[in-house]
Design a protein around this nucleic acid. Structure first.
Length: 489
RNA sequence: GGUCGGAUGUCCGAGUGGCUAGGAGCUGGUCUGCAAAACCAUUUACAGCGGUUCGAAUCCGCUUCCGACCUCCA
């Protein structure tokens, strides 16, 4: 049997996955900063790491999945010097920062739920772990790798680099960073306080206009950009744990700094496997405010955006994301999304067909071999696109058997159904979408279709066509098969 | 400017030395009162140039183009 191999950004190599403790896996994934509605860029990470978590659990591991909510915010650069994103948004909306965080945490979690992403076991908030962050900062200072200036605390990158490899994760060379070519135009707040431009803040002194601030040994202030993840991961997963995940954009400085902070405290790189997913583009372009192509998830679900020709369902979005490998960029376009929607529909049709297949004495297809291939694909750095290709192969088999063009034994039919259940539903998390009032609607529709059958038997085609046409006008699709009609919306 | 990654057919997107990826679209067929849907089948590739090799989408070099990070970011 094959075993999971995964690309570790830290070593830049494919590695066999072996957890620290047999049968248990600790996984930390960087969650959202909740200062705005969830957009397409927020959705890939949760889905990718949800599939990893599901696959690990399928493989028999107990997974402790921690995904943080950043409700303290990060500093805004440039014009909004030193101001917290959450604080800024709160001021704009004239409410408490926590109201901002709460509102967008709820909408994020609602989006996650619709995408069939399993909730993490622990969802810690940065604001609820100020004490842990202060303690960690103190530990870095005790190690002699941080210094205080005017109520702010900075990490001493130079001192750290004497004993440790700063820049290994992101492939950065400290000397190059020092040269800092092309960055002269940037005027970052607090730069003059730093002993070195590459030092980063662990704690920032709060000015009166900062509406989010806490007491600390260094006076009123708020935590730096990276310390929350280090502190919370350590609290819930220990000094060293298995997986730390996030988007590639977090490689530097966020994860590089996390490694530095944690190493300063514990002497260890906190995570054994660093896993990063690639970014998304929209019509081949980076999603950016200046390009006016930022699509929120709600807009996608409602089809309510100038770039969208129609609405796409949460499962279509999930399926679309998983059709590309997690380390490749993923391009959103109407054509690609609608192709995914139709492909998913084909898959679901086959799942239904597979449930009602008639068994033969002999079989002509090795279903077990196909299931094994799914496993091999997944073990090869989570190659979900290949798993999906094999599911389409399974769909083809189901349809062929249904058409009497291929034979399967009763056992093989069971295996085929299990293959869909395991790989499509359980591991990829693509669950059929059915609304709560589906059952009642189903009854009404069945009644109409029965009437239409009667009309057809009576050769009253005017009536039967009228029923169909009026249902079509309402958005229903009527399919006439050998064994009666079916419908979909 | 520095570092890293990418360029696959009409579109999306797997694939690291020889074996049909897959989906969507197009086309043909089956089914059908008609239509639609569904199903089956089929078609179009490896950015350019050079090199290594019996053999290259895959390895090497050069060229062109694109992107990411270097600053908050998913």
């Amino acid at each position: 049997m094959s075993t999971l191999h995964i690309y570790n950004t830290y070593s830049r190599n494919m590695e066999e996955f072996r957890p620290l403790h047999p049968s248990r896996v600790g996984m930390y994934v960087c969650g959202p900063t909740v200062y705005g509605p969830p957009h397409l860029g927020h959705v890939r990470g949760p889905v990718v790491f949800d599939v990893l978590r599901r696959y690990l659990e399928f493989s028999g591991f107990a997974v402790r999945h921690v995904r943080n909510i950043t409700d303290v915010g990060h500093l805004v650069g440039d014009a909004d010097e030193g101001e917290d994103k959450l604080a800024k948004q709160a001021r704009l909306e004239q409410i408490e920062p926590m109201e901002i965080a709460q509102a967008y945490t709820l909408s994020y979690n609602e989006m996650i739920r619709q995408m069939n992403v399993l909730p993490p076991g622990i969802e810690p908030r940065a604001s609820g772990h100020i004490i842990e962050q202060i303690e960690m900062i103190q530990a870095v200072m005790d190690a002699g790798l941080a210094y205080e200036v005017n109520g702010s605390v900075y990490f001493d990158v130079f001192a750290y680099a004497k004993n440790y490899d700063y820049g290994k994760l992101s492939g950065r060379v400290l000397d190059d960073l020092i040269a800092g070519a092309g960055n002269e135009s940037r005027e970052l707040e607090g730069q003059d306080e730093k002993q070195n431009p590459n030092d980063f803040a662990l704690w920032k002194r709060a000015n009166p206009e900062h509406i989010m601030q806490w007491s600390s040994p260094w006076g009123k202030g708020f935590p730096g950009w990276h310390i929350e993840c280090s502190a919370m991961a350590r609290k819930y997963l220990g000094d060293v744990f298995d997986i730390h995940g996030g988007g590639m954009d977090l490689l530097f400085p966020h994860h590089e700094s996390e490694i530095a902070q944690s190493t300063a405290c514990t002497g260890h790189n906190p995570a054994r496997y660093w896993i990063h997913h690639n970014m998304i583009t929209i019509n081949g372009q980076k999603m950016a405010k200046s390009l006016n192509n930022g699509i929120t998830v709600d807009q996608l679900f409602a089809g309510n955006h100038p770039l969208l020709e129609q609405a796409y369902s949460p499962m279509t979005l999930r399926f679309f994301i998983l059709q590309a490998h997690y380390r490749s960029t993923l391009d959103f376009s109407n054509e690609a999304l609608s192709a995914a929607e139709k492909g998913l529909q084909r898959l679901w049709n086959a799942v239904k067909v597979a449930r009602n297949l008639v068994a033969s004495e002999s079989g002509e297809y090795d279903v077990q071999a196909l299931a094994k291939e799914c496993r091999v694909s997944m073990d090869d750095d989570l190659n979900a696109p290949q798993v999906i290709a094999r599911l389409f192969e399974a769909a083809r088999v189901a349809n062929l058997v249904n058409d009497g063009k291929m034979k399967l034994t009763a056992t093989q039919i069971t295996e085929l159904n299990a293959l869909f259940e395991t790989w499509l539903v359980q591991i990829l998390g693509i669950a059929p979408e059915e609304s709560s009032d589906h059952r009642a609607l189903d009854g009404v529709m069945q009644m109409l279709l029965d009437m239409r059958v009667q009309a057809k038997q009576d050769k009253n085609y005017a009536l039967s066509d009228s029923i169909r046409d009026r249902l079509t006008a309402l958005g229903f699709t009527i399919k006439d098969g050998k064994d009666g009609s079916s419908w979909s919306l």
